[in-house]
Structure formats: C-alpha cells, structure tokens
Design a protein around this nucleic acid. Structure first.
Lengths: 217, 217
DNA sequence: ATAACGACTAACAGTATTGTTAATACAAAC
DNA sequence: GTTTGTATTAACAATACTGTTAGTCGTTAT
C-alpha cells in the first residue's frame, strides 16, 4: 500500500488535480442545467479531461451529482446555523440583519435556490436530506422565534405574525429575485446596473418586512 | 382533397382524438419535467398511443413543446389583460384585488410559474416571446401605475414606492409559495390542510403588501 | 370498383449518452 | 529490477431517445 501518490509530491500547490477540476466543472454544469440537463461528456470537456477520467474518479453521473448536491446542502446548513447565532441584538434589528445576510449570501450564490428547488422537486428522494439539514429551523428556530414574536406582540411592540409566515415572507422576497434574475435582466428595467438593482431590492425587501412587523400608531 | 375525415363524423363528442390526447399528455409531462426531462415515449405511453403517432401528428418533440409553451404564454397574457381591466375601483382596493386574483390563478395553475421560469432560463431564445406577451405591463401598466402611486404618495395617502418594486413584491410573495409547494408540504407545517395553508398565505401576502403601502400615522 | 387519403403500427435507423475495459505509462516499494 | 498501484486514454458496449419509413386497414370520392 502506497502512503502517498505521485501527484501528492509533484503537484504544484497552485493548480488543481484533475479530480478537483472535474468536480468544479460538474458543479458549474449541474447548477446551470440540473441533473437531467447536465451531460458527463460536457463536464469532462469543460474540465479539460477525457470523459473516461470522470468515470474513473466518480464512476457514475449520480455519484458526481451527489457530491455536488451534498456540498450545497452543507453550505445551506452552515448559513442557517450562522444566521441564528447572533441572538444578542433586539428582535427587529435581528430580523433586518437576517434579511441582509440572507440576501448577501444569495448574491454570492445566485444559482443555488433554483438548483435546490428543482432538484428537490424532480428527485423527491432527496427531500429527506434537505429536511434533516434544516430541521434546526423547524424544530428550534421557529418555536423560539414564535415565542419572541408573541411576547413582543403582547407588549404592543409589533404586529402579530406567525414565525413560519415571517420566514416564508423573507425567503420569498429574497429568493424570487435571484430565481428570475436572468429574465428580469432582459426586461431592462430602468437605466440601473445589476448591482444597483440588487441593492435596491435588498432595501425594498427589508422595508416590506419591517413595515409588516412594526405596530401602527 | 377531403373536406372532412373519418373521425370528424364518427368520433363521439365525449372522447378525445388521439391528437388531443397526445397534446394533453405532453402538457402534463412538460409541465412536470420540463423540455429536457420530458420523453416523447413517456408522453405517448401516457396518452395511450404508440410513440410513432406522436411524431405522425407533431413530427418533433420541439414542435409539440412549442404548442404547449405557446398556449401557456397566451394564458399568461390573458390573465394580465384581465387583471388590468378593473380600473374603476380605488388604488389600494385594486391592488388587493390583483393580489387575490393572481393568487387564485396560481391555485388553478400551480405548476405554471416553475415551468415558465425554468424554460425561459434554459431556452433563452424563448424570452423574446415572453417579453412580447408582457410588453403591455412594462410599457403601459407600469408607467400609469407609477403615476397613480406618485399622486397618492404626494397626497400623503400612501408611502412612496416604485411600481416595479410593488409588482415584484406581489409576484414574489404569491409565486414562491407555489414554486416550493411540494417541498413546503413535506415539512408538514402545523396541522393545517393544504387548502387552509394556501388561504392563510393569500391573507398574509395581502397583509404584507397593504402594510407596505399604507401611510404610518 | 378502384384510386386516394387519413389513421395507424412495427420495425428500423441514427444519434446521444452513460459507463466499461484493455492497454499504456510511470513512479514507488521491495 | 521486478512488482505494484495510480493515472490515463482510446476504443468499445449498452442503452435510451428521437425520428423515419414501409406498409396495412378502412373509408371516401369518382
């Protein structure tokens, strides 16, 4: 048994192994075209390797897909954990921070929502993995958030709302922009750049959610 | 040249021609799986005909797809025209009616948004058709709505908002529920039925938009 | 009657796509 | 230096999918 291989020794730190190149190309292709639309030959070509190499390292298309899918699931889970941890600030301010960080996350990962939604719907067996990853939301965040919301509402500080509705409102407003971005872009809305458009949408989404929560005097 | 065919005379009114059965099966398959995911053999099987029949009547998969796609585009266009026509009621009430009718339309066509979004993104050449269909919105509805919103805001009756943002807010909140419905359903939110859940979401979406618009005293 | 036409099928053809395998090269271990 | 294991490729195999074709059957027009 060899303790290390040729490439462990001779690979420059700067360039990636073929195995990594394939995974990267697969990620791009799966994110854009989904499992069905992605072709292993196309992935191999994009990675600059023969398509036999793809099968050599990952054996099947499904295997390769699962690697990508799982990494995205982990990404989602980490973001959720992260967004829950700053529980020292006041409720309304915290909601605003969550909207912002969620939106900023989407700016960095614009294709992720459509990818996950489509794959979860076309491959229902994958839903269990998703449910497990976001269980922390359904079983911990929502109940505790609901209690906070109810307390604040009882004090007359905010309007009544179900935690699930609040979260769904935020996620809907934030994600929809990114799901439809290629379409919205082609409608050439005003003379704004894409960056300006996104900044404006982030502000608008915060505005909408805040006005939903603040108590009318 | 024959003026009429056998089936014109002998077909019972009650059952459909094979040509129609194929189109119906194609619609269901394309809506669920998209162009790539749909298989002509599967469509034929679902329609209860040999797959040669499918090619006999529609020649190519793309042809068949375009028939389905165009009919959905027309549907969208009609809904838009329809939702614009009741311009006699007051602005806020009219906005509420638009949200409701849009939501109710989605209840009747739950798969339509995901289908259109995915196909418009995976087949960018189709975007032109879409843009033509909704031109009435971008070129007529938005400018006139913007004027109304500005007038009301100047009077202090509502908060300032860009017409484009208002429409995007409504569409985001309404559509996202349906895009993710199969996923949300499996999260078994509360002991509500699907109908109750949707009724609640319609109310919540109206609430959110109204609170965004009404002026804080 | 028979020619023409629409509806229909089975069988085939062509290509795309995924996956395998036999063979080669080459460094590492002993 | 021979063996062993990894990396790599070209070529092949198997299947899936779209589309075509030749031919049958029944009805209609003349």
């Amino acid at each position: 048994m060899l303790a290390y291989t040729t490439k462990d020794i001779y690979m420059k730190d700067t360039d990636e192994t073929k195995e990594q190149l394939i995974l990267q190309a697969a990620e791009a292709e799966f994110m854009h075209k989904g499992f069905q639309g992605a072709k292993t030959a196309s992935i191999a070509k994009e990675a600059g390797v023969t398509h036999a190499m793809l099968h050599y390292y990952y054996r099947t298309k499904e295997n390769l897909f699962n690697k990508v899918f799982d990494s995205k699931m982990t990404l989602i889970a980490n973001i959720i954990i992260q967004s829950v941890t700053n529980s020292d600030v006041a409720l309304l301010e915290r909601v605003k921070l969550v909207i912002e960080s969620h939106f900023d996350f989407l700016v960095q990962n614009p294709d992720l929502p459509r990818f996950l939604i489509n794959e979860l719907i076309s491959q229902p067996d994958k839903k269990q993995i998703f449910e497990d990853k976001i269980r922390v939301i359904t079983s911990i965040v929502i109940p505790s958030l609901q209690k906070e919301l109810d307390d604040e509402a009882a004090k007359g500080a905010i309007e009544q709302i179900k935690a699930f509705d609040l979260i769904l409102n935020i996620v809907s407003l934030n994600i929809f922009v990114f799901i439809t971005f290629p379409i919205l872009k082609s409608l050439d809305f005003s003379p704004h750049t894409a960056d300006e458009f996104l900044e404006n949408r982030k502000r608008e989404n915060i505005e909408v959610i805040m006005r939903r929560l603040i108590k009318q005097k």
